[in-house]
Design a protein around this nucleic acid. Structure first.
Lengths: 218, 218, 218, 218
DNA sequence: AATGAATGAGTCTTCATTCAT
DNA sequence: GATGAATGAAGACTCATTCAT
C-alpha cells in the first residue's frame, strides 16, 4: 500500500534526493515509518524530517502542522488500500469468492508491510477515536464494501437472510483484523496471507444457508 | 468493570475524600477515566491527580512514574474482567454455550462502561505494541480461555477439527472486538450486549460440523 | 518606580532567594530590565527567567504567556507612577504649582531609573499601538490628571480659556516627554529633573493670561 | 512623505509591476506600510516582498538584511520630510512665523499619511534606541533646525534669552509630537494639521518676551 | 537580475518529576 | 504520608536567509 505514483526510480526507499518535488511523498512515507515505530503521538516531527531527508522546516511547507502530516500519511495509506480493494471486487464473481479476494488482499497487503500493519492496527482506530472526524470516511467506505458483498450473497440466497449485514461485516472484518493484530504482536514472522482461506472458511460457513441444517440451534 | 473490591463507601465516585487509604484505587479509577477521554499519551498526570482528589506528587508515592499508573490501571481493569470471564466458564456446559456466555460477558461488560470500552479498544492494543510487553499475559490468558473452549468443542466432535483453534479463537474474539469498536465509535448508544447472540450464531455456525454439508465448498 | 511593597530585605535587587512568594515581583522587575535592554518584542522569556533567578517554567506559573509578563511589567510600573502622581496632586495648591510638581515627579522618576525611562519612552507607546488595548487606561488617566489641572487654572482665571485643555495637556506632556527622550538617547547622564522648572516655565508662560499683552499676535 | 524621486509612473501605488528598475523604491514603500501595520520587529520579510510584488529573495539583492530594509525605509521617509522642512524655512520671515510653518508641515505631513505617522511615532524612536545609532543624524538635523530658529528669535529679542534653546526646541517638538501621537492612537480621524496654530500659540507665547509681565513668576 | 523552495537556528511553552515543608 | 511550587528537558513551529535554477 505504499506510494501510488511509481514515478522516478522505483525500489522502496531510494528517492533520487535531487530536485523533483517528490518531497511530499517522501514525508508521507517517512511519517508512516515513524508512526509505526513510535505511535502517532510519540512521533517527532524532527524524526520524520530526518527520515524523509529534509529539514524540519520543510515539513511545514507541505503540511500545516504535525497532526496534518500524520493524518495525511494514514489517509494516503488507507486510501491506496481502499483503491486496491475496489479493483479486487470489480470482476463479477460469487460473493464468497469476493470475500476471499478481500481477505487475501487485506492480509496480503498488511502482511507484507509490517509498518503499515502496525499503523492500521493501532493508530488508525486510535485516531478514529481521538482525532476529530479522522478518516471516518475511508473506514466506513471499506465497511460498506463488505456489507454490500454480504447483501449480494443474501439476495442470491447463498447467505442467510436473518443475519444483519452489519453484524456479518463486523464478523468478517473483525476476524481478519484480529489475525493481523496477533500477527503484528507476534515475534515470529509467519506469512499472514496464508491464513486468509481459513478465516474465510469459518466466516463464510457461518453465513451460508445450509440445505438441511438450520442455523446453529440454541 | 470498575473497582472489583466493593470496599469502603460504594456508589460510583463518592470517595470519602478525607481519610487516606484507598487512594491507590482512586488513582487507578481516575486514570481509566482520563485515558478514556484523552488517550494514553495525551493523559496528564495532573489531570489524573485532580480527578483522584490527590496532589500531583502523591501519585508518585504509589507509582514509579506515569507509565506505571496507566499500565496498572489498564491491568487492573483487564484483570477484573478476566476474573469474571473465568467464573463464567466454570460450570460445565456445551462449548457453544460457553462461547455464548463469553460473548455476553464481553459485550455486556464493555457495553455498560464506555470509558472502559474505549480504553480496551484503543489503548490496550496500542499499549500492547508500544509498552514493553504490556499486559501480554492477560490478553494471552483470555485468548487461551477461548482456544480451550474451541478445543473442547473439537474433542466433543461439535466443532470442525480441520480449523486451527488459534484461527477459530481469532475469529470469535475478532468478531466481538469489532462489535465493540463500532459501538464505541458510534454516536448512538444502542445496547451492545444485544448483539452477542447474533455474533455467536455466525461464528458457531462457522465452526460447527455439518451432517450433510461440507464446509464452504470453493 | 520599582517594587511598591518594601517588604523583606530592602535594597534594589537583593531578593532573599529563599522561600517567600515574591517571585512574582522578581519576575516583573526582571521583565522591566530585560525590556529596557532589548525592547518588548526582542525580550526572551529565558532571559527574564534567568535575571529573576527562576526556572523558565516558573514564569508560566505566574503568567499565561510571554505577552502577559511584559504587559504586566509595564502596567505595574506605570501604575506605581500614576499612584505617586495622584498623591502629588492631593494638596491644594495653585495650578501652576501642581504642574511643577507633576513635572518634577515625571522627570525625577524617570531620570532616576533609566531602565524605566527606556520602557516608558519606547515600549509604552509602542505597546499602546501594537498590543490590543494595552495600558490605554493608565495613559488616559495620567492625561486626564493633567487636563484637570489645566481646567482648574482656566476656571481660576490664571490660564487662558481660549486654549483647549486637551491641547494644553499635550503641550505640557509632550514637552516633558521629549525631555525624557532626549535624555534617554543622550550618552551623557545629566540630572534630568533639573530641567523640570525650565520646561514648566515655558509651558506655564504659554498658558497664562497676560494683563497687557494678548496672546501671540499672528 | 513617500517616494521623493517622482520617477516613473506617479500615483501612490501603481507600479508597472512588469518591468524592473524601481523595485528598490517599491520595497521601501512596502516596508513602511508593513512596519506601520505590524511594527518593526513584527514585520516579516515575506510580507514586505509580497506587498512590493517581488520574490523574497529579491529583497536581498537590494538590501543586506531585514534590518537594512527597515532602516532604509525609515531613513528615506524621514529624509524626504527633512528636505521639505528645509525648504519651508528658506524664505526670510519672523521666527514665530517659521515655527508656525514647521508646525504646519509637521502636523500636515504626518496627518495626511497615517502609516508614516505610525512609523514616526513608534518605530523611529524605538529604532533610535535599539538600532545602532539609527537615524540619529536626521533627527538631530531636524532638532538643530528648530534650535536655530529659537536662537534667531532670541537674537532678535522676541524670544526670552534665559530659556535654553535646547529646552525650547524640546518643548516645541515635544508638543507637536504629542499631538501626533494622540491623533495616531485615536480612533477618530480629525484633521491633525488644524491643531498646528493652537500649539504654536502656546509654545510661542511661552517663549516670547513680555513687555510688562515678567515670565511666569514662581 | 529574479525567483521561491529549502534550510535550520532560535524560542516559547508544556508537563513529568522532585523535594522542602 | 501528603502537598504543590518549582524545575528544566524536550519539541513544535517560525522565519530570515541562501542558492540552484
Amino acid at each position: 500500500m505504499p506510494r501510488s505514483k511509481p514515478t522516478a526510480s522505483s525500489g522502496t526507499a531510494d528517492y533520487p534526493a535531487g530536485r523533483g518535488g517528490e518531497k511530499y511523498q517522501r514525508i508521507l512515507d517517512a511519517a508512516i515509518a515513524v508512526i509505526a515505530e513510535n505511535g502517532f503521538f510519540q512521533s517527532r516531527v524532527s524524526e520524520i524530517a530526518e527520515r524523509a531527508g529534509v529539514a524540519d522546516g520543510t515539513i511545514y511547507l507541505y503540511f500545516r502542522n504535525k497532526e496534518q502530516v500524520l493524518m495525511a500519511a494514514i489517509d494516503a495509506a488507507f486510501g491506496a488500500f481502499l483503491e486496491r480493494a475496489r479493483r479486487e471486487l470489480e470482476p463479477a464473481s460469487p460473493p464468497s469468492e469476493k470475500l476471499r479476494r478481500l481477505a487475501r488482499l487485506h492480509l496480503g497487503a498488511l502482511g507484507s508491510n509490517r509498518a503499515m500493519a502496525i499503523v492500521f492496527q493501532t493508530e488508525l482506530r486510535h485516531s478514529a477515536k481521538f482525532l476529530a472526524q479522522f478518516s471516518q470516511h475511508s473506514l466506513v467506505t471499506y465497511f460498506d464494501m463488505i456489507r454490500q458483498v454480504v447483501r449480494e450473497g443474501q439476495q442470491q440466497g447463498v447467505f442467510r437472510r436473518e443475519i444483519s449485514d452489519k453484524i456479518a461485516a463486523n464478523c468478517f472484518f473483525g476476524a481478519l483484523d484480529e489475525m493481523v493484530t496477533s500477527w503484528m504482536l507476534s515475534d515470529r514472522d509467519y506469512p499472514l496471507v496464508g491464513a486468509a482461506d481459513a478465516v474465510v472458511d469459518v466466516i463464510v460457513a457461518g453465513l451460508e444457508t445450509r440445505p438441511a441444517n438450520g442455523p446453529s440451534q440454541r
